[in-house]
Design a protein around this nucleic acid. Structure first.
Length: 280
DNA sequence: CACCATGTTCCTTG
DNA sequence: CCAAGGAACATGGT
C-alpha cells in the first residue's frame, strides 16, 4: 500500500492515536520484519515505552518513544513494503492472518500486518541515512544536477530513493505523464528546463495524492474497527479518476485520445502515452 | 498453470 | 570505487 502519500496519510492518522500511549507488551509474530533487530531485544526495549511522536521520511515511518527507564528518545523505523498496513484495533478482534507485530496498548492493540512481509518494523535506522531529499525540499537546480551522472532511463531513476525519497512505481509514471516526458529518456539527457518541469510534476502529483486520498485500490476497511481509511469513495471509481496513466494500458489518453502503453523497465511496469510523451 | 502486484537489498558483471 | 541489471524475498489476485 505504500508510496509516500499513503505513508504520509497513515502518519497523520496514527500520530494523534498513538501519542501518549504506553506499550504494555510487544508480540512479534513474524521475526523477518524486524531485520536485523533480534526479536527479544525488540520486545524488551519497547515494553513500557511511551509513544511521543510519529514522523515520515520518504516511505518510512519514524516512531519516537520515551524509553521506560531512561532519558532520551527511542526510535523505531517502520516501512510498509508492498502490502503492509498499520492500524489500531479492539483487543477482542481476531488478528489478521498476516499480523507481524502486535503492540498491546492497554485499551487497544496497535497492529502491523503485512501479507508479503517485505516491510519492516525495526530498531535499525540506517536505511534513512541513504535517502535523498524530500521532493518538496530539493531545489530544481540540485535535482537537475543529480540526474547528470546517470544514463539510466528517467523512470527507473525516479525509483532510486537516494536521488529523491518517496516516489514509487505508480507516481513515477504519473509524474512523467504530467510533465509530458518520455519514461525512456536517459536521465542525463534531460535539460535543466525539463528537470524543473519534472520536479514540479512530482510535487503536484504527490501533493494531490495526499490531498485527495490515494492511489492504491485498497478495499477500505472503514466498516471494520479502527483500520484504514483510504478516502475511497465506495464506487471504486475514485482510483480511476485520480490516476491518469497508471494501470490504464490500452485505454485512451486523457489528453490526446491515443492508447496508453505499458512497457517494462528494470522489471517493473511503466505506463505512458507515446504521443504525449515524446523522446528517447 | 501463467502472470502480475504499491519495494528494497543483495549479488554479479562490466 | 561505481553504474547497471537481475534475482530474491513471500503471498495472493486474476
Amino acid at each position: 500500500m505504500p508510496e509516500m502519500p499513503e505513508v504520509e496519510i497513515l502518519a497523520r492518522h496514527l500520530r494523534p492515536l498513538l501519542r501518549g500511549k504506553t506499550i504494555r507488551s510487544v508480540t512479534v509474530r513474524r521475526e523477518r520484519v524486524l531485520r536485523p533487530t533480534p526479536p527479544r531485544l525488540f520486545e524488551k526495549t519497547l515494553a513500557g515505552a511511551m509513544f511521543k511522536n510519529l514522523t515520515r521520511r520518504g516511505k518510512y515511518l519514524l516512531f519516537e518513544l520515551q524509553p521506560k527507564n531512561a532519558k532520551g528518545t527511542l526510535r523505531v523505523l517502520g516501512h510498509l513494503g508492498m502490502t503492509g498496513r498499520m492500524f489500531a484495533a479492539k483487543k477482542n478482534e481476531t488478528l489478521p492472518t498476516h499480523a507481524a507485530v502486535v503492540f498491546d496498548l492497554g485499551d487497544r492493540n496497535f497492529i502491523y500486518e503485512d501479507v508479503r512481509y517485505f516491510g519492516r518494523m525495526t530498531l535499525d535506522l540506517s536505511a534513512i541515512e541513504r535517502l535523498g531529499p524530500e521532493p518538496s525540499e530539493v531545489s530544481p537546480e540540485t535535482f537537475a544536477q543529480s540526474l547528470k551522472h546517470s544514463r539510466q532511463a528517467i523512470k527507473v531513476k525516479l525509483l532510486d530513493q537516494s536521488l529523491i525519497a518517496g516516489v514509487g512505481n505508480i507516481y513515477a509514471s504519473e509524474a512523467l505523464y504530467r510533465a509530458r516526458l518520455s519514461p525512456k529518456l536517459p536521465a542525463n539527457r534531460l535539460t535543466a528546463e525539463q528537470a524543473k518541469k519534472l520536479l514540479r510534476a512530482i510535487r503536484e502529483v504527490l501533493r494531490d495524492a495526499i490531498k485527495f486520498g490515494s492511489t492504491i485500490p485498497v478495499k477500505t476497511t472503514s466498516g471494520k474497527s479502527g483500520a484504514l481509511f483510504y478516502f475511497d469513495d465506495a464506487e471504486g471509481s475514485f482510483y480511476e479518476r485520480r490516476l491518469r496513466v497508471y494501470d490504464r494500458v490500452g485505454k485512451p489518453c486523457r489528453n490526446c485520445g491515443g492508447k496508453i502503453e505499458r512497457i517494462t523497465q528494470a522489471a517493473r511496469s511503466t505506463y505512458f502515452c507515446p504521443r504525449c510523451q515524446r523522446g528517447r
